[in-house]
Write a protein that binds this DNA or RNA. Sequence first.
DNA 1: GCTGGCCCTGACGCCGACGTCAAGGCCTAC
DNA 2: GTAGGCCTTGACGTCGGCGTCAGGGCCAGC
Lengths: 148, 148
Amino acid sequence: MRIGELADRVGTTTRTLRYYESRGLLPARRDGNGHRTYGEADVRLLEQIRTLQDFGFDLEETRPFVECLRSGHPAGDACPASLAVYRRKLGELDSLIDELTSVRAEVGAQLARAERAMAGLAADARAPGGPEPRCELGDTTEGKGVRG
Amino acid sequence: MRIGELADRVGTTTRTLRYYESRGLLPARRDGNGHRTYGEADVRLLEQIRTLQDFGFDLEETRPFVECLRSGHPAGDACPASLAVYRRKLGELDSLIDELTSVRAEVGAQLARAERAMAGLAADARAPGGPEPRCELGDTTEGKGVRG
DNA sequence: GCTGGCCCTGACGCCGACGTCAAGGCCTAC
DNA sequence: GTAGGCCTTGACGTCGGCGTCAGGGCCAGC
C-alpha cells in the first residue's frame, strides 16, 4: 500500500503521514522507486494515533501507544508507559475541567450582574430625569464590587 | 505615564502594550520625543483586557469591552456588544466542558479496561503455561468493544 | 564626555500540526 | 509522445500572543 491509499483509508492526508514519519512516529519502507510502502499494521498504528488525537492527545503523547503496538502487543495501551500517559491525561483533563467550570461560573456571574445593571439603567431611563448618567472617564475610584 | 510604568502597574510588559496598540486595542498619545503617554483611564482599559484574557477570551473578544469603557461607560460590560460576547463565551465554555467531560469519561474507561487487561495478563503469567501469548500483528479483526 | 536607563521601530522566533506550493521523477493510457 | 496521476523532497505559510534581538535616539547624572 502506498501513501495515498493509506491516507484515504484512515481519512487523513499524505502530508500528515509524511509529517508523522518526520517525527519518527510512523516510519515507512520504500519500494524500488523510493515510494513509501505500508502494510496493514500501519493502518492500525495510524488509527491508534488518530483516536488519541481526537481525545486531544498531542503527537508526542501518542508515541508510547505506537511503540507498544509495534513491539507486538495487541493493543496500544497494553504497556505501562501508555497507562502512565492515560493517567497523566486524566489529571490534566480534571484540572482543566475544574478551571473551565470555575471560569464559566465567574463569567456567568458577570453576565448576570451586567444584565441587572443594564435593566436598572433602563428603568432609570424610563422613570426619573435623564436617559443615562453620561459618566466621564474621570478619577471616580470605581471598584469591581458594584454587585448590589 | 510612559509605557514602562503602565506595564509595571498592570503586571505586563511593554511589548504586550505595543502589541495591543498595533491591534488597535490600546492607542496611545505621544509626547515631544515620540514616547507613548498613558493616563489613568488606560490603566482601567488594560485591567479589563487582562481580566478577560485570564478568562480565556482572546484579544478580539475583549474589543467590545474596551470600546464600551472608552465610550464613557463605567464598566466594560455595560454595553450590549459585551453582553453578547459573554453569552457566546458561556456557550463555548459549556460545549467545551461537555466535550472534555465526555473525553474524560472515555479515557477513564480506556484506562480501566487496559488496567484490567494487564492484571489479567499478569495472572496468566503466574498461573498457566507461558508468560505472554505473544500476539502476532496479524488480521485478528480486533474491535474497539473489548469492554467486558 | 560618557555611562546607564528608558524609549523607539522593525523584524525574526516560537509552538503544533499540519496546508500549500514548487520543481521534478516514474509509470500508464491513449 | 504526451497528458494525467501518483509519488518524491524542500521550504515557506498559518494562527495568537507575544519574546527577543538589532540598531538607534534622548535625557539625566557623574
